[in-house]
Design a protein around this nucleic acid. Structure first.
Length: 909
RNA sequence: GGGCGGUUAGCUCAGUUGGUUAGAGCGCCUGCCUUACAAGCAGGAUGUCGGGGGUUCGAGUCCCUCACUGCCCA
């Protein structure tokens, strides 16, 4: 791969011209593939597998940007960085997608049959399934593509089967008839997590049931779902509720149906709700089911799997549940059984996938007894083996884990991991096995058929941290890469995925011995050591992006317009832990400008390299280590700034403070490097005859050295631009295949003295510039200045005269021992400076400025004096704080005096 | 109903354990095509830190309370 650059770059940076090329290069060169044999401390991270049905959205891009920054950074810090990509088969979503496609052909999956349908899904997957990962390649994610997986791959399917069988052997998987959340549209059971609750304006119907023993007397119940009364088997009241004590044990006649049902006393009933009496329908409500269990009641299911009334509903059979409700209410009213209808806000559960109202339904399902797994998962976090950032999620996790319910893992779908259980037609027993059995393990009958249910998709994704490394068969990768170091994900799948991985990881990996054969502790069984949870990407108005609102920002679209690096940088700079990101194009525009700035800094450097070559000075970028480096003020300063910045970025990234890291590198590159260092270095780049070639060479060497290091510093954030410039820097003959394989800058040496000096020089220059503006000096005119300062500072400024002259457009510098007076004067604690310029512009404006300044300082002084007069402050505050304030107060006295005098000189107040 | 956040410049947000003058980007105003960059350079304006109370020598930061607002769980 040759960087298409000669030393003359186009004037403006055009990301589209280079990004595709590098994206392909990184993949084809397999730069980020990692083997267990490689060296370095492992940094392993798993991509949260996107759905095969998905398209890349801003959330993915944020997630991937953060992971890529961390992975590139760790890799450059010498870690063996492995980022594993893959895709999730997404049971319901994918099946829905293909069914929709079939519907367009006027076909159903039932017509096709299970096998043909699954073939069809695979075809669909081959066609459309790779979308997000392809987009990821284009965005330059530094993942190991050789390890790409799909959750329905053979080896992963074997692992899923193994996990199921083991849990079954351990007695943790059971099958039984319980109330589950049933989606009448998807026609499958779904887990608690897949139900979203919504507040809704509904009604509370009060219906009277006649007491059988005392005809003519009634008990009035309250219900939000009158249609289920057809399946009532009892009415429950609170045992202590005096109103109904006389009815305990009595029987009631169910209206419309005529069935006699008992009154039971159950403490679950809330006397305050409705009338304090509730109907009990065990087949259609989880609480009623529990009551039914406690009181030994039967269950009458009055609906089918599509939420239409069934034969048990008698005259109402065949009606949709809501039609039946209307009909039943009407008839109750006609019979005079309807006592009241009240408005009532209730919470309705809907299917997360299709938003159909979920029907609690009694059905036979497979469950995972979760408590033993949850116990380990709680311990792992409690003992600090897994750390959450931001920390508050630890509490959320804990709360959920401690109130966990058994997990319904079966789904009535065709697309997914089919449960490895076989039903025997002869003895009715179930055989659970790793390999397809030929006979029933109980009665040896050959009359067996496999369970038709598949497993919840999250069951298989929960196993990924170890199954992607070859569990249970191939120990080598597992030994090397497990546990992974980090998980980066959104809070929306904290329970779905993160919690399940922790439970499964702690459970299954505890059984896998350590590489040295010793027993694995919980600390080593966890799937990852850290979890970083990022926020939501919203639109610029802080609105959640949604298709219905039409405010979805397509990352690819933005990338096309501003370049991948600018979009990545935007996300990173806004990714403050725990805060949602209001994605703003204005920011992206700003960071595109940043990329352009760097591009032009490179142009400047390359141009000067050529000028140098023409002047006979050749500096080889490949032998900078041995080149003598400049020792001038700006050289020592920029070297120190680079080191300081590197140290701060390393710290920030270690704490997932992406916004800090991004701002630091931005500030360094634009502020320190371009605004100051490059401007100062221009002084040295004098190619006329008679200049000191050695110092010129040294200046260029340091310039190149610093620029190259700055590119490395920026590389994890802007991989494309830095890759391009880095290759150009080495004129297409780089020492390594990619900047991504170089080392990240570390803080070797920080020179606080030179940073302090430079700060003074900068303050002087800025003050001169400001004074010039006040006086209305034309931009181009060079003017004389006068400085009053102490001896040491005078020496320093004298040495820096050239810089002052160039950066502040000064014609001459004069030092004064006497106090300065007149216009164009600026005072700081360390020096006073005056711009000598005849043309007095606006004394009124100057007076206003000084008056404001004076007021500010007076206020601050009053504050300081008050504190310093305070005995308790002096005795209780730490010495350095008191000293600091004393020093500041002294400074203020001086500054105030200077400012007052300046005001007087202007003609008083 | 239970829990967790948020409220700081016109906008979007930083502000680690309380400590001297509350910051950034964008936007805004003024002047500059100063030979790397007008996607630029230089200078400038802008805050009762949501209200109230408390703790403290000292509060944007800790506690209480109210208001508004977002999210999670049931």
């Amino acid at each position: 791969m040759s960087a298409s650059l000669d030393k003359t770059l186009p004037k403006a940076y055009d990301p589209t011209a280079i990004e595709d090329r590098w994206a392909e290069y990184w993949v084809s060169e397999q730069l980020f593939d990692v083997s267990w044999k490689d060296a370095g401390a492992p940094f392993t991270i798993l991509l949260p597998p996107p759905n095969v049905t998905g398209r890349l959205h801003m959330g993915h891009m944020l997630n991937q940007t953060e992971m890529d920054i961390l992975t590139r950074w760790r890799r450059m810090c010498g870690h063996r960085a492995l980022w594993v990509p893959g895709t999730d088969h997404a049971g319901i979503a994918t099946q829905m997608m293909v069914e929709r496609q079939l519907a367009e052909e006027k076909k159903t999956r039932q017509e096709l049959g299970r096998e043909a349908f699954i073939d069809r899904v695979w075809q669909w997957k081959q066609h459309y399934g790779g979308a997000i990962l392809d987009q990821m390649k284009r965005l330059g994610a530094s993942v190991d593509w050789s390890r790409e997986y799909f959750t329905m791959d053979d080896d992963l399917s074997i692992a899923v089967k193994e996990a199921f069988v083991r849990l079954h052997e351990q007695g943790l998987i059971y099958r039984g008839a319980y109330i589950v959340n049933w989606c009448p549209r998807c026609q499958t059971a779904i887990s608690d997590l897949e139900v979203v609750h919504e507040e809704q304006q509904g009604k509370l119907w009060e219906i009277r049931y006649e007491v059988v023993e005392d005809p003519g007397t009634y008990l009035t119940i309250a219900t939000t779902r009158p249609e289920t009364m057809l399946g009532d088997v009892a009415v429950a009241v609170h045992p202590d509720d005096e109103r109904y004590r006389h009815l305990h044990g009595k029987r009631l006649r169910l209206p419309l149906v005529g069935r006699e049902i008992p009154v039971v006393a159950d403490a679950w009933v809330s006397p305050e709700f409705g009338t304090g009496a509730v109907k009990v329908t065990p087949a259609h409500d989880p609480n009623d089911f529990a009551i039914g269990q406690r009181h030994g009641l039967a269950s009458i299911n009055v609906m089918d799997e599509t939420a239409h009334m069934n034969e048990a509903a008698g005259a109402y059979a065949g009606l949709d549940r809501y039609v039946a409700r209307k009909r039943i209410v009407e008839e109750l009213e006609a019979q005079g059984a309807l006592v009241a209808v009240k408005d009532h806000v209730n919470s309705v559960g809907k299917c997360d996938r299709c938003k159909t109202v979920v029907e609690p339904r009694l059905s036979t399902q497979w469950f995972l007894k979760i408590q033993p797994l949850a116990d380990k998962a709680i311990a792992a976090v409690e003992q600090g083996y897994i750390r959450f950032t931001p920390e508050q999620y630890r509490k959320t996790y804990d709360e959920w884990m401690r109130n966990i319910h058994d997990w319904c893992i079966s789904r009535q779908l065709w697309w997914g991991h089919r449960i490895p259980a076989w039903h025997c037609r002869t003895c009715g027993q179930i055989t659970v096995a790793r390999d397809t059995p030929s006979v029933c393990s109980h009665c040896k009958s050959a009359e067996i058929t496999q369970e038709t249910d598949v497993l919840d998709t999250w069951f298989s994704s929960g196993l990924l941290p170890f199954t992607v490394f070859g569990w249970p068969r191939n120990p080598r990768d597992l030994e090397t890469f497990y546990p992974t170091q980090l998980l980066v994900t959104g809070f929306d799948i904290l329970f779905f995925w993160v919690a399940r991985m922790i439970m499964f990881g702690c459970w299954f990996m505890s059984e896998v011995p350590m590489p040295d054969g010793s027993e694995r502790t919980l600390k080593e069984a966890v799937p990852f050591r850290e979890v970083y949870i990022h926020a939501l990407v919203r639109d610029a108005d802080r609105q959640k992006m949604s298709k219905t609102k039409g405010n979805v920002i397509d990352p690819i679209d933005i990338v096309k317009r501003y370049g991948t690096d600018a979009v990545r940088f935007t996300l990173a700079a806004m990714a403050s832990p725990g805060t949602d990101i209001a994605f703003s194009e204005a920011r992206t525009e700003g960071y595109r400008a940043f990329a352009n700035k760097i591009w032009n800094a490179a142009r400047f450097i390359f141009m000067n390299l050529e000028r140098a070559a023409e002047a006979g000075i050749v500096v080889d970028p490949n032998s900078l280590e041995t080149a003598p480096l400049s020792d001038t003020l700006e050289a020592r300063w920029i070297a120190s700034r680079l080191n300081t910045t590197a140290a701060e970025i390393n710290r920030a990234l270690g704490e997932y403070r992406f916004h800090e890291a991004a701002n630091l590198v931005y500030q360094f590159f634009w502020g320190d490097f371009c605004d100051w260092y490059l401007e100062m270095v221009k002084l040295r780049l004098d190619f006329n005859d008679g200049v000191d070639q050695a110092s010129l060479r040294a200046a260029i060497a340091l310039l190149l050295h610093t620029f190259e290091a700055a590119l490395r510093l920026l590389s994890p954030f802007m991989p494309f631009l830095t890759e391009e410039l880095w290759h150009a820097f080495y004129d297409g003959k780089p020492p390594l295949k990619s900047i991504a394989l170089t080392r990240y800058p570390q803080a070797v040496q920080v020179d606080t003295a030179v940073e302090g000096q430079m700060a003074q020089l900068q303050e002087l220059i800025v003050n001169i510039r400001a004074a010039r503006k006040d006086l209305g000096v034309e931009e181009k005119a060079a003017v004389p200045i006068r400085i009053r300062t102490d001896e040491q500072m005078q020496q320093f400024f004298t040495d820096a005269t050239q810089m002052i002259e160039r950066l502040a457009r000064v014609s001459s510098v004069e030092f004064s021992v006497d106090a300065l007076a007149g216009s164009g004067l600026r005072s700081t604690t360390h020096f006073d400076v005056q711009v000598i310029y005849e043309k007095q512009i606006d004394p009124a404006a100057e007076r206003e400025r000084l008056t404001k300044e004076l007021a500010r300082m007076e206020k601050e002084q009053a504050n300081a004096e008050r504190q310093l007069a305070n005995e308790s402050f002096l005795s209780k505050a730490p010495a350095q704080v008191v000293d600091g304030l004393r020093k500041r107060a002294a400074e203020l006295v001086l500054l105030l005096e200077k400012t007052r005098r300046a005001l007087d000189d202007l003609g008083g107040r």
